[in-house]
Design a protein around this nucleic acid. Structure first.
Length: 801
DNA sequence: CAGTGAGCGAGCTTCCGCTTGACTT
C-alpha cells in the first residue's frame, strides 16, 4: 500500500526529491509528455471543434502502465510536473491517461529543488488549471495544423519529404535573408589615422598611442592630411577622466549557456546540451533547459559565502535579475552549480570545462561591479584642425572581472587599453609617426548555431528544449549547411609620416575566413521564397509573438482555445487550398542565355538530384542535355560562363595506355573515365581544369586507396577480415564489427586473435547495461567539434614594398 | 555500388515541445 505517489518530469529530479520526502512518498518520473497527436495523420477533428485525438506513443505504453499501477495503489497522487504551459498539460494528460480519481489528485509545483520549496509545495496543493491546459492544446493544435498542411504542399510543389513549420521556417528565413544582405553588401574602404607621440617625463621617454577622431573617405584626402601634418607641432589640449562601471551578466539560461560555450569553448549547441545533461544527471548542476535567470535563496546564500571566503566580502553583491526574453515561462531556476562551494569537479575534460564556465558565471553574477577609470587625452596642433585622441583605462576595482569576462560575437579588436602617462594640458609632444591605414566596412556576419539561437530567442521563437533540435532539423532537411569558408587575400594601403617624409606601402590581409557558419542551400532559398510568397503571415517574424499573446489570453480564461484556432484556421486553410490549386511547381528555373553553337537556350534549375544546367527545351523532339552543378556552385549565383564550361563536359583529355581519358560530371559528382572504369574526382581538383598527368595520378592513387581499405584477409575464413574504417582499424566478422585490443597491432593480427576477440565479446553479452554505459561515456564527444570562432579579418600583415 | 534529370502513379515523407535512451568499432 502506497500512501503518496509523486510524479515529476525528469528521473534525475525524482531521485533528488525522493531523498527530501519521507518514507510515505514514492517519486516516479513520467519522462515528459506521455500522450500526443498521432504522427501518422492530422489527428485534429476540424469539423468537430478541432478536437485533438491523443494517443500514447508505443515507447511510452510500458511506462504509463507502470505509473497506472502505482497510482491505483496510492491514496494521493501528487502531480508535480513543471509549472508552465507544457507542464500543466503533462499533469492533465497524466490525470486523463491514468484515469485518476479527481478526489485523490493534487497538483503541486516548485521552481527550485530544495527541501523547503518542496515541503512548501506539498502544503499548498491546487487543482489542474484547465485554462493553462487549453492554452497548451491551442499551441499544439496550431503547430500541427501549420506543419501538416504546409509540408504536403511542399511535397507537391517543390520536392518530397520537405517540411515547414512555425519555428523551423522562420529559422531558415533568417539565414536566407542574411545571405541576401551579404550578397547585396558592397564593402567600402576608408582611411583611419593613428599616431605615436613621445614625451619625456622625469628623464624617461613615454609613448602615447592616439587615434584620429575622424576618418577619410579617399586615399587622396588621407594623403592630404599627412601633407598638412608636415612640420606640425602637437600639444596636449585636454585631459578628461571619468569613472565607469561594468556590471556582471545574469546567470546562465539555456540560450546564453549555448552562446558562451560556443564562443569560449568552441562547443556546438548540441554538444553543450549533451555535456550539460551529463552534469545534471551527475547532480553537478541544476536543470539545463530553462529560460529563467532566477537563483534560489539557498543558491544566493551559498554564493555569498563562497565569494566571501574566496575573494573577500567587498566582492559580494547579491542581485536579483529579471528575465527579459519574450514568452519566458520560468518553470526552473537559472543554470548553476548544485553546490556552489565546489569550484571544480571530477569528470571528463569537457564536463570540467563546461562546469567551470557555469561556476564562474554564477559566482560573477553575485559579485560587485568593476570600477574603471577612463582617460581621454585630446591632442591638437595649430597647423591642422583634426584632433587625435588617446584613450586609457585603469581598473580601480576588478569586482566580478576577477572571475568572469563576458565576450560578445562582435568584439572588434578591443585591445586592452593600458595606462596613459601622467601628462598635463599644454605639454608639448614629440611626433614620432603619423599613419593612415585603409580599412573596410564589414559585411553582416553569417549566423553561427549559437547566434541563431540568440536571434530566435529575441523573437520569442522556440523554447529551451528545442533550440538544439531546430538546428539539426533545418540541416537534416538540407535547407541550410554549416560550413567553413576560406579567406581571400586583400590588399590595403598604408601611409606614414616620419621625420616629415611621407612613405607608402601596401600590405595584404586575409579576410572572410569563416568557421562553422550557417548558409542557405538552393532548396532552402526556394522553399523560403515559396512560403514567403504564399504564407507571408506565418513566416512573419512576429507571428509567434502574436499567437503567444492569444495563448496567454486563453490561459487567463479570456478566450476559448478552439475559437482562437477556428479564427486562425479559416483563412489559413483557404490559402492552403488556393496555393494547392494555383501555384506552379517550383524549380527555380532561370534562363542564363543562348548557346552560340546550337542556338538553344541554356537554363539552370533544381532537379530531382540537385542543381543542374539544361540545354534545350523539355518540349523539343530531341531530349535536352543535362549537366549537374559542381560542389560550391548554386543555381542562385551561377553565370552563363560557368554553365558553358559545364556543358563542355565530358571532355577528352588525351590517351593513357592507348585509351581515352574522359572527364565528366555524373551521379556522384565529377569523375574520370578510363578503360570503362570510373574514378571520382575529390575536392581540390576541378574537372573543368584538370590535366592529363593529374588524372593519371588520381587513377593510380585509387588503387592504393582500396588496398588500404583491407588490412588483412584470411584464406581459411573469408568471413573474417581486418578493415580500415572511418574510426580506424577494426575486425569485421559475419556482418558484425569488433574493436581491436589496444595492445595488438592491426596488421599482425592472426585469425586466432580475431576469433578470441569475437568470443570474448560474446561472453560479455549478459551484462548489457554496464557495457553500454561504458561505451557511451567513452566515445560520446567524438563528433566533430566546432572550432573557436575566429575574427573575420585575420590580419596577416606582410609588407610587399 | 555507378555516372540520373521526361511522365505516369503507387506509397512514403511532415509539425513543436516535454523527457531520456540508444546495440556506432
Amino acid at each position: 500500500m502506497i500512501k503518496n505517489l509523486v510524479i515529476v518530469e525528469s528521473p534525475a529530479k525524482a531521485k533528488t526529491i525522493e531523498k527530501f520526502l519521507g518514507n510515505d512518498f514514492i517519486v516516479k518520473s513520467c519522462f515528459g509528455h506521455i500522450r500526443d497527436l498521432s504522427k501518422k495523420e492530422l489527428s485534429v477533428d476540424i469539423k468537430n471543434g478541432f478536437l485533438p485525438q491523443y494517443e500514447i506513443p508505443t515507447d511510452k505504453k510500458k511506462l504509463v502502465d507502470e505509473l497506472g499501477k502505482y497510482a491505483k495503489e496510492a491514496q494521493t497522487v501528487w502531480l508535480a510536473s513543471d509549472e508552465d504551459r507544457e507542464g500543466e498539460a503533462i499533469s492533465w494528460h497524466l490525470a486523463e491517461a491514468l484515469n485518476l480519481d479527481t478526489a485523490k489528485v493534487k497538483r503541486i509545483a516548485f521552481h527550485e529543488i530544495t527541501k523547503t520549496a518542496i515541503l512548501e509545495a506539498i502544503e499548498n496543493p491546487r487543482t489542474i488549471n484547465i485554462n493553462l491546459v487549453d492554452a497548451q492544446q491551442a499551441r499544439r493544435v496550431l503547430d500541427r495544423l501549420v506543419g501538416y498542411e504546409l509540408s504536403p504542399l511542399l511535397w507537391k510543389k517543390v520536392r518530397p519529404a520537405l517540411s515547414a513549420g512555425r519555428v523551423q521556417s522562420v529559422a531558415v528565413r533568417l539565414i536566407v535573408e542574411r545571405e541576401e544582405e551579404i550578397r547585396n553588401f558592397t564593402s567600402v574602404s576608408f582611411f583611419r589615422g593613428g599616431a605615436i607621440f613621445n614625451i619625456m617625463i622625469d628623464g624617461k621617454c613615454n609613448k602615447i598611442k592616439a587615434e584620429l577622431s575622424n576618418r577619410f573617405k579617399t586615399k587622396a584626402e588621407a594623403e592630404d592630411f599627412l601633407k598638412r601634418c608636415v612640420g606640425a607641432e602637437f600639444w596636449v589640449k585636454d585631459i578628461e577622466t571619468k569613472p565607469a562601471k561594468k556590471s556582471p551578466a545574469p546567470p546562465f539560461i539555456t540560450s546564453t549557456l549555448q552562446q558562451d560555450a560556443s564562443r569560449k569553448l568552441g562547443f556546438s549547441v548540441s554538444k553543450t546540451m549533451m555535456i550539460a545533461q551529463q552534469l545534471y544527471e551527475l547532480g553537478k548542476i541544476t536543470y539545463m533547459r530553462t529560460d529563467s535567470v532566477n537563483l534560489s535563496n539557498m543558491a544566493l546564500s551559498m554564493a555569498k559565502k563562497e565569494i566571501e571566503t574566496t575573494f573577500g566580502s567587498e566582492y559580494v553583491k547579491i542581485r536579483n535579475y529579471k528575465t527579459k526574453s519574450k514568452g519566458a515561462q520560468e518553470a526552473h531556476e537559472a543554470i548553476r552549480p548544485t553546490y556552489i562551494n565546489n569550484q571544480t569537479i571530477e569528470g571528463t575534460n569537457d564536463q570540467k570545462k563546461l562546469y567551470d564556465l557555469i561556476w564562474k558565471r554564477t559566482i560573477a553574477s553575485q559579485m560587485s561591479d568593476s570600477e574603471i577609470e577612463k582617460t581621454n587625452i585630446s591632442i591638437s596642433s595649430p597647423s591642422v584642425k583634426e584632433i587625435f585622441v588617446a584613450t586609457g583605462e585603469v581598473i580601480k576595482f576588478d569586482g566580478f572581472l576577477k572571475v568572469y569576462f563576458e565576450s560578445t560575437d562582435d568584439d572588434e579588436e578591443e585591445n586592452n587599453k593600458g595606462m596613459l602617462p601622467p601628462v598635463k594640458p599644454g605639454d608639448k609632444l614629440e611626433r614620432e609617426e603619423i599613419s593612415m591605414t585603409e580599412r573596410f566596412t564589414l559585411q553582416p556576419p553569417r549566423y553561427t548555431e549559437a547566434s541563431l539561437v540568440k536571434k530566435l530567442e529575441e523573437l520569442g521563437i522556440g523554447r529551451p528544449s528545442t533550440y538544439a533540435p531546430i538546428i539539426s532539423t533545418i540541416q537534416k532537411r538540407e535547407y541550410v549547411v554549416l560550413g567553413n569558408k576560406d579567406g581571400v587575400e586583400r590588399i590595403y594601403y598604408q601611409m606614414f609620416l616620419r621625420n616629415d617624409t611621407i612613405s607608402e606601402t601596401h600590405k595584404t590581409e586575409t579576410v572572410g575566413y569563416e568557421k562553422a557558419k550557417l548558409s542557405p542551400t538552393d532548396i532552402g532559398i526556394l522553399v523560403n521564397n515559396f512560403l514567403k510568397e504564399n504564407f507571408g503571415d506565418i513566416l512573419d517574424y512576429n507571428f509567434t509573438a502574436s499567437v503567444e499573446l492569444e495563448f496567454d489570453e486563453i490561459a487567463e480564461g479570456k478566450k476559448v482555445w478552439n475559437v482562437m484556432i477556428k479564427d486562425f484556421y479559416k483563412n489559413f486553410h483557404i490559402k492552403v487550398d488556393e496555393t494547392q490549386k494555383t501555384a506552379k511547381k517550383v524549380s527555380g528555373s532561370r534562363m542564363l542565355g543562348v548557346d552560340s553553337v546550337t542556338g538553344k537556350n541554356i537554363y539552370v534549375k533544381l532537379g530531382k538530384f540537385g542543381g543542374m544546367i539544361q540545354l534545350g527545351e523539355n518540349a523539343d523532339d530531341v531530349k535536352p542535355r543535362f549537366v549537374g552543378l559542381l560542389k560550391g556552385q548554386s543555381i542562385d549565383n551561377i553565370t552563363l560562363k560557368d554553365a558553358l564550361a559545364l556543358l563542355s563536359l565530358p571532355r577528352n583529355l588525351g590517351k593513357y595506355e592507348n585509351e581515352d581519358v574522359v572527364v565528366g560530371v555524373g551521379r556522384f559528382g565529377p569523375y574520370i573515365r578510363h578503360k570503362g572504369k570510373f574514378y571520382s574526382i575529390k575536392k581540390g581538383d576541378n574537372p573543368l581544369e584538370i590535366s592529363l598527368p593529374r588524372s593519371i595520378e588520381i587513377m593510380e592513387g585509387k588503387q592504393t586507396k582500396s588496398d588500404k581499405y583491407i588490412i588483412k584477409e584470411f584464406a581459411e575464413n573469408s568471413e573474417i577480415r581486418v578493415l580500415n574504417g572511418r574510426y580506424g582499424p577494426y575486425i569485421s566478422a559475419m556482418k558484425k564489427n569488433y574493436k581491436i585490443p589496444k595492445e595488438k597491432e592491426p596488421k599482425d593480427l592472426t585469425l586466432q586473435d580475431c576469433l578470441d576477440v569475437i568470443n570474448q565479446v560474446g561472453e560479455k553479452e549478459p551484462s548489457k547495461k554496464t557495457a553500454v554505459k561504458k561505451n557511451k561515456t567513452k566515445k560520446a564527444p567524438k563528433k566533430k567539434t566546432v572550432g573557436k570562432a575566429k575574427k573575420s579579418t585575420a590580419k596577416k600583415a606582410k609588407t610587399t614594398r
